[in-house]
């Protein structure tokens, strides 16, 4: 297990194939990160909305602690 590249610039150049290698790795990171974060945001929005709905629909004693802004974990 030895690194195949001596310097950073050599690593970035990838023996002349830098554009292709970084394009494909970049797109992969983009897709994976995109699907992770878009889901995370959707989930947060959904939790906020559901908590708000729940706090308006249920009985009064539980109502005060759960406005959409103050709930934990959001």
């Amino acid at each position: 297990m030895v690194p195949q590249f001596e310097t950073i610039s050599e690593f970035l150049a990838m023996g002349g194939h830098g554009l292709y290698v970084w394009l494909s790795y970049g797109s992969t990171v983009l897709v994976l990160a995109g699907s992770y974060f878009s889901l995370r945001f959707a989930r947060q929005r959904q939790l906020e909305q559901l908590r708000w709905q729940a706090s308006t629909n249920t009985s009064d004693q539980q109502q005060t602690a759960h406005s959409p802004k103050s709930s934990n974990g959001v």
């Binding site: 297990m1 030895v2 690194p3 195949q4 590249f5 690593f11 990838m14 023996g15 002349g16 194939h17 292709y20 290698v21 494909s24 790795y25 992969t28």
Partner: peptide, 24 residues
């Protein structure tokens, strides 16, 4: 990614472009 990009040996025909294989 680190293993594939840095430590895996070059392909004798394709050079470094074969590292795309690790994501493709």
């Amino acid at each position: 990614v680190v293993w594939g990009l840095v430590y895996a040996p070059q392909d004798y025909q394709q050079g470094n472009s074969f590292r795309i294989m690790y994501v493709h």
